[in-house]
Design a binder for these strands. Structure first.
Length: 584
RNA sequence: GGGGACGUAGUUAAGCUGGUUAUAACGCCGGCCUGUCACGCCGGAGGCCGCGGGUUCAAAUCCCGUCGUUCCCGCCA
């Protein structure tokens, strides 16, 4: 029986007889003596074996699972390793039993190797990748954060209630995963994109506060921060206004951060309206670790008139970003790259100026007059060595295009310190937006409550209406989103109507919700965290695959289990499905 | 759906303006080694150069297609 885990033995344990189990992280065979770094989830302990008494010692290889018994001894003084917790001792083995041999490894598990396996290799042998320190620590950190969030939600009287995985198709949102019913011929469930409607029904049922750490599913194309199945921390509260939701959630997050990050100094989350975020940062999820603010320029900023190069054919507006001390960093090539980035994002032209001591260098034909330079210097607090990026285009695309430039500049100028955490609430989102077909669509979802004062706008100027919706943004990533929900059936009906749904559609899709709202519904609202993204940021990773034990590839496949896989027609038949694709 | 990068021993890479037997490191196998911790030294094995087609006297190398991994845009109520 194992007597100790592999992180725990210290100098004061010298003389103890111990039995240790684990993986041979590293084997160093010196002929007449063999050193094995024994590893488990908790740490590493060095074992020294004498092949003269333990012949198997010279056969040991990396990643074999072994059990040894022996005596804890102090390392010779000059052999003490200060960088390892157990570095003062080692275990002199008296027995060694091989529990399980390991085949030749596709990549080294132990730290310190220069060889970094490719993604394909890592995915194929995910269980081995998970043995490596980095991924292992990410998964442990995730477990810690799960525990801390659970504790805090429980402390705030939230009830953990499960909602169905086999749900109903609601095709308004993301592409869904569908599940054929065997019993109900020709009918389908859908996997939930969110437990949205169920948590509202739980509020109607009177549970008052609900939370759930739960998988949700979206059959969309993947990204570094998107997986087809991902984990939400979903929650909902009754008898609250938006301010109370924000305060409660912020308190929970702050408490979790204090327990998770040892040096965390809690500062209140910043508050920004959607309009301010767009105007100042060109994004509804601005990264606030750096300033690089967007400023409007107009005719009065140009003493001698706006240079021809900055006058658009049609309605043109000008937005400028002043970047500090980077005039020397921007070569022609980098500027061209920025320019094409800006154009791709929908901007018309991106000009630049280098603020130099004597004469400004600029891409603007004819240059910038001394008088205008003086105005800009004051307006933007310019110093020699700064650089201006002036974007020409039409709102609102100009703002988002400049937001893209801003983000790109920050990366190039190394302003994105991953150890820094800048949180912000974004509020007052538009209730609706126009989709590609020019139709009205919910920006958040159709159960979002408009601001009280905007209710009269629903029938007349719906695009002007703002929602009681809120996103939580961390370092430029949307980590949570939610809203106050509609608790009045008449308002809900108005929103459905504004969205152009017929009475028949409303009844078939959301009839049960409208019905439920009629039986005494408390005002309620909540939020859902993208837990994978949150863990990714808090662990300093740039892909959520690094914090998910068994993620999917970019194409949504699993290289380890080879899923998804074709099903023969006879296996599909019970589900009343006929495949149009011939299995390979 | 669109655009970019990558694919060569078990692994990670070099080779790519075509030309002898495809190179290195780590790993693996054998030998030596009592204080290693990226142990060291000596020797060895290991290749459908992703796959298919084309150009050529000759293709890892050039061209076309395809598959896979990845990053971005679209998409993600």
């Amino acid at each position: 029986m194992r007597s100790h885990r592999l992180h725990s033995l210290r100098r004061q344990d010298v003389g103890k007889t111990v039995e240790l189990n684990g993986w041979a992280n590293k084997v160093r065979n010196l002929g007449k003596m063999v050193f094995v770094d024994l590893r488990d989830r908790w740490g590493i302990t060095q074992v020294v074996l004498d092949p003269a008494t333990i012949p198997i010692a010279s056969q040991l290889r990396a990643e074999w699972v072994i059990a040894i018994s022996g005596e804890v001894i102090a390392r010779p003084t000059n052999m003490v390793r200060k960088d390892i917790a157990t570095g003062e001792i080692e275990v002199s083995a008296t027995t060694c039993q091989v529990i399980s041999e390991a085949a030749e490894l596709p990549f080294p598990i132990a730290d310190g190797s220069k060889i970094e396996p490719s993604d394909t290799t890592r995915f194929t042998y995910r269980y081995l990748d998970l043995r490596r320190a980095k991924l292992k620590e990410n998964i442990i950190a995730r477990s810690t954060l799960t525990r801390l969030f659970r504790q805090e939600f429980e402390n705030h009287d939230f009830l953990d209630i499960e909602t169905p995985m086999l749900y109903k198709s609601t095709p308004e949102g993301a592409q869904e995963f569908i599940v054929p019913s065997r019993v109900q011929a020709g009918n389908f469930y859908a996997l939930p994109q969110s437990p949205q409607v169920f948590k509202q029904l739980l509020m109607i049922a009177g549970f008052d506060r609900y939370y759930q750490i739960v998988k949700t599913f979206r059959d969309e194309d993947l990204r570094a921060d998107r997986q087809p199945e991902f984990t939400q921390i979903d929650c909902e509260m009754s008898f609250v206004d938006q301010e109370q939701v924000l305060e409660t959630i912020e308190a929970i997050v702050q408490k979790v951060l204090q327990q998770y990050l040892p040096d965390y100094q809690p500062t209140p989350f910043m508050r920004l309206t959607y309009d301010d975020a767009m105007q100042h940062y060109g994004s509804d999820k601005p990264d606030l670790r750096y300033d690089l603010r967007l400023h409007r320029l107009d005719a009065k900023d140009f003493v001698d008139g706006i240079p021809d190069a900055l006058v658009a054919e049609e309605a043109g507006e000008l937005v400028v970003i002043a970047a500090r001390s980077c005039a020397e960093k921007y070569s022609r090539k980098r500027l061209d790259a920025l320019q094409s980035l800006f154009m791709q994002a929908g901007g018309k032209r991106l000009a630049w100026c280098k603020v130099l001591a004597d004469e400004w260098k600029t891409s603007i034909r004819g240059g910038i007059s001394a008088a205008t330079q003086a105005v800009l210097r004051t307006k933007l607090a310019l110093q020699t060595g700064d650089m201006l990026f002036i974007g020409l285009g039409a709102s609102p695309v100009l703002l988002t295009a400049m937001g893209t430039v801003r983000q790109h500049l920050a990366v190039e100028l190394e302003l994105t310190d991953p150890s820094q955490f800048k949180w912000a609430w974004i509020t007052d989102f538009p209730l609706f937006e126009r989709n590609d077909a020019g139709e009205l669509a919910s920006m958040h979802h159709p159960f979002t409550m408009p601001r009280e004062q905007d209710l009269p706008l629903l029938g007349v100027q719906p695009l002007e209406a703002k929602a009681q919706a809120h996103d939580l943004v961390l370092n430029g990533v949307e980590v949570a989103g939610g809203s106050i929900r509609i608790h009045r059936p008449d308002v809900q009906a108005q929103v459905f109507t504004a969205l152009g749904l017929s009475q028949q559609e409303i009844d078939s899709k959301f009839g049960f919700l409208l019905q439920a709202l009629r039986y005494g519904t408390p005002p309620h609202g909540g939020i859902a965290f993208g837990f994978d993204r949150l863990v990714m940021l808090l662990t300093g990773n740039s892909s959520i695959r690094e914090v998910i034990a068994f993620p999917k590839t970019y194409k949504g496949t699993c290289l380890m289990t080879s899923s998804p896989s074709p099903l023969a027609q006879e296996l599909l038949a019970p589900y009343h499905i006929k495949s149009l694709v011939k299995p390979p």
